[in-house]
């Protein structure tokens, strides 16, 4: 296999007493989308800032397209685009004014900077707002402008740090479409997110991080497979919740979580559970179930398991 285009090995970073990263490893093959998934404070932004040459690691190293992010920062900068949670554009300028300015700062000629600005505005649906001041843009429009600003030089690797946090579903869908288009053209994307469905939809591979370390990697399907199937039980009588929970706990060794006012859900610890056996146990305890079902876990459940109970995984 070809060398990964983004490679991080053993990244450490502390801020005073906070260890933001403790030996983070990442590897992203060219042309794929890597979803970096983690709760708030997991170290996602810190990792992206190091990869984008904005911050130096205390230990470990990282390479983009083979270039070291510390020693060959200029080479790295020529190959990356960065768009973040906050729209890093000049609010006082128009959308077009921003793109032209940043185009010039990428050392395009005036003519080319203007042409590229128009091309991007047209393609990403901002032409109508091109001559309005960014202050008047909606959150989604700002984020889109921020995104296309980072595309001016056609980066090989695009870093997106929580690109849809705080956006309405429609704007989120528009950002997703844009990302898919870029990937179809061969751009490699490293995307951090707190939203599981975002990673599920966009990412080829996911790295789940918590407390500055990768706690699991794999495709969305592989991750779902790691925690076994899920059992959902709906009771006929909500009063039976407590005894039903006791039965499920005895069977699986974990406390089930409530779903609605009359349902229970629990992860099955791998293998030998048969639906029939579970129903029999409930029956024996005198509990009437309206519905008992086995299903694949959602990525949310995987995520909660991985980030809550890290000791089981590590």
């Amino acid at each position: 296999m070809a060398d990964p285009i983004v490679l991080a090995e053993g990244l450490h970073k502390s801020f005073g007493g906070t260890h933001a990263l403790r030996g983070l490893d990442l590897s992203v093959p060219q042309g794929t989308v890597c979803g970096v998934l983690g709760p708030n404070g997991a170290g996602k932004t810190t990792a992206v800032r190091i990869l984008a040459t904005l911050s130096d690691p205390d230990a470990g190293h990282a390479r983009i397209a083979g270039y070291d992010v510390v020693r060959e920062a200029d080479q790295v900068r020529a190959r990356i685009g960065l768009a973040g949670q906050y729209a890093a554009v000049d609010e006082k300028l128009t959308g077009r004014g921003n793109l032209r300015m940043f185009g010039r700062l990428y050392h395009l000629s005036r003519r080319e900077a203007h042409r590229r600005a128009d091309e991007l505005l047209e393609r990403f649906g901002l032409m109508d707002a091109a001559d309005r001041q960014v202050t008047g843009y909606s959150g989604g429009m700002r984020r889109r402008l921020d995104l296309i600003t980072s595309l001016i030089l056609r980066p090989e690797v695009l870093f997106l740090d929580e690109p849809t946090t705080g956006l309405d579903p429609r704007s989120r869908g528009e950002i997703w479409d844009s990302v898919r288009e870029l990937v179809a053209e061969g751009t490699t994307v490293l995307l951090t997110t707190q939203y599981l469905d975002e990673a599920d939809r966009l990412a080829d591979d996911i790295a789940v991080i918590d407390h500055g370390q990768v706690v699991a990697t794999g495709t969305p399907d592989e991750l779902k497979a790691t925690i076994g199937d899920h059992l959902d039980v709906v009771l006929e009588d909500p009063a039976a919740l407590r005894p039903a929970a006791a039965v499920l706990n005895a069977l699986t060794g974990t406390d089930p979580t409530m779903t609605g006012d009359d349902g229970l859900s629990v992860a099955l610890p791998g293998g030998a559970f048969r639906l029939a056996g579970i129903v029999r146990e409930l029956d024996r305890a005198g509990i009437a179930a309206a519905d008992v079902r086995l299903r694949r876990p959602t990525l949310d459940e995987v995520f909660l398991r991985l980030t809550d109970r890290k000791e089981n995984v590590a």
Binding site: R49, A52, T53, L54, D74, R77, A78, I80, L82, G84, Y86, A87, A88, V89, D90, E91, F102, L105, Y106, H107, T149, S150
Partner: peptide
Amino acid sequence: SRGVMDRFRSMPMARLA
């Protein structure tokens, strides 16, 4: 504070500019 400075710093610009 708005991230514009970070964008500048992530670009292949002249550092003193």
